[in-house]
């Protein structure tokens, strides 16, 4: 494979996988630590109607309107979940399930009604992702990496992904300490005077933004895998906050790269003919990572030293 082929076909998809999965892994750590994993599931489904409306209003797949629509939908979904849980007095899992399936269904019907489906945003993209379709046709060689004109020709999805990744990274860096306290002891955070509600809202909005950005690359459902799997794997292996958060991001990015390579390029380089859906392989690897972490933990707990420390853990 020549350098140009790599730059044109593989680099955009690889970059998208790293950015999407890394961002999702980073935010997933907070979801898992705060025991709100289900919210990741819910938000990644619930943003669909917002994306469709943003798309339908502007008639183009522009990043910003879709992002705004998705954030509005995510906010509405979180509020509704709280309302349903309080008013109907059902457990939060069921309330979450009722709300996010409704939003997702609404998104599907809107897609049908607005005709968004036929143009550019199809069901396959929602369900399976479209990592493979990201190409960079302006690349002519390694020099293109430094050429602003060629860089501008990178797929729009990458711009959105990069923007969201930078924003989320900044958010986490700036709020490192408050987020830590919020995760481990929300009451203490409130006692210290941190605006706990607003921090939670910021985190939820970040998750929604990451879900939109990743939606472009891996589809609506597999975002869940990238939000929860790396973080859960690290949760099984470590008690260290820094390791948990940064490790989840790194593990997410690594799984993204490995999944993409395993799906197509690697078998092709070895002479195979089978190309799998990259998002599917990435999600599967996420599950495998959790399973491996669980096994590792079981093995470690088998050793005497941990067996003493383990009860109650």
């Amino acid at each position: 494979m020549s350098a140009v082929d790599f730059l044109r076909l593989d680099l955009p998809a690889l970059l998208a996988a790293v950015l999407a999965c890394g961002t999702a892994g980073l935010l997933g750590a907070f979801l898992v630590l705060r025991r709100e994993s289900l919210l990741g599931d819910a938000l990644s489904h619930a943003v669909l109607p917002g994306i469709i409306v943003g798309f339908a209003l502007t008639g183009a797949r522009a990043g910003l309107p879709m992002l705004i629509g998705a954030l509005a939908a995510a906010m509405a979904a979180t509020l509704l979940i709280t309302l349903v849980r309080r008013a109907a007095r059902i457990e939060s899992g069921a309330a979450t399930g009722a709300v996010f399936t409704t939003f997702f269904a609404l998104g599907l019907v809107l897609m049908e009604v607005t005709g968004a489906r036929s143009v550019d945003l199809d069901l396959d993209c929602v369900l399976f992702g479209q990592l493979e379709t990201l190409v960079w046709l302006d690349a002519t060689g390694w020099g293109s990496l430094l050429d602003p004109a060629a860089l501008a020709g990178l797929p729009r999805q990458l711009h959105l992904l990069a923007g969201v990744a930078v924003a989320v990274g900044l958010l986490v860096t700036l709020l490192w300490r408050p987020l830590q306290i919020l995760c481990f002891d929300p009451d203490y955070a409130a006692a210290l005077g941190y605006p706990a509600r607003r921090l939670e809202l910021a985190l939820n909005m970040a998750v929604a933004a990451a879900a939109v950005a990743a939606f472009e690359a891996v589809g609506s459902i597999l975002v869940v895998a990238m939000l929860v799997c790396p973080a859960a794997a690290l949760r099984l292996l470590t008690d260290d906050y820094r390791l948990q958060v940064l490790g989840s991001a790194a593990a997410g990015a690594a799984i993204g790269v490995a999944g993409y390579l395993l799906a197509g390029p690697l078998p092709a380089a070895l002479g195979g003919t089978v190309a799998l859906n990259a998002a599917g392989v990435i999600g599967t690897l996420g599950g495998v990572a959790v399973a491996c972490a669980a096994l590792l933990r079981a093995l470690r707990r088998g050793t005497p030293r941990d067996a003493v420390a383990a009860p109650g853990a």
Binding site: R35, G280, V281, G287
Partner: peptide, 30 residues
Amino acid sequence: LARTRRIREDAAIAIVLSSFYAAGVALLSY
């Protein structure tokens, strides 16, 4: 997964549904 106690049932559900579904997607593309 829920028996490890580190991962609560809701997280376990999210992990299983997404990774199984992902495996299905990969198989479907095959």
